[in-house]
């Protein structure tokens, strides 16, 4: 059994790569798959939740390096009635909720 931290890291890479390839729909797909293959004691929901947040976090970090993230965050947050940091939190929370839920579903439906 791998350490949970390693699992989160590996899964975050999968979320990041698959989001680049397929877009946001990759999040529930990867998480569902993870739920199907992970063991219950590995707490697939929590790992997927953290992995998705970290995976999208990598992508946001990439934007911060190559783009003008500061102003975008202020503007996009303002449109949604949020402070800039709120928009970052929303962006990270969105895949976390979906991934956590999808992994739990995957874990629940896999053949025992």
């Amino acid at each position: 059994m791998r350490r949970p931290a390693s699992q989160v890291l590996l899964l975050s890479a999968a979320f990041a790569v698959m989001t680049v390839a397929l877009g946001w729909v990759a999040v529930p797909a990867v998480a569902l798959l993870w739920g199907l293959v992970a063991r219950r004691e590995e707490r697939p929901g929590l790992v997927a939740l953290l992995g998705a947040g970290l995976g999208w976090g990598w992508l946001l970090g990439w934007h911060a390096v190559v783009g003008e993230v500061g102003e975008l965050v202020r503007v996009a947050g303002g449109v949604m009635g949020l402070p800039g940091v709120g928009f970052v939190v929303l962006t990270l929370a969105f895949p976390m909720v979906i991934a956590g839920g999808a992994a739990v579903v995957g874990e629940a439906v896999k053949p025992k």
């Binding site: 989001t19 680049v20 877009g23 946001w24 729909v25 999208w56 992508l59 946001l60 934007h63 190559v66 783009g67 003008e68 993230v69 102003e71 975008l72 996009a76 949604m80 929303l90 962006t91 969105f94 979906i98």
Partner: peptide
């Protein structure tokens, strides 16, 4: 995420850090 609610756009494509609104930061300069 897929359909959106009220005046909000569908959050999935909107928040997508590659093809969503975040990508606007990459073309700012």
């Amino acid at each position: 995420g897929g359909v959106g609610v009220g005046p909000l756009p569908p959050l999935g494509p909107f928040l997508d850090p590659v093809a969503g609104v975040w990508s606007v930061a990459r073309s700012a300069t």
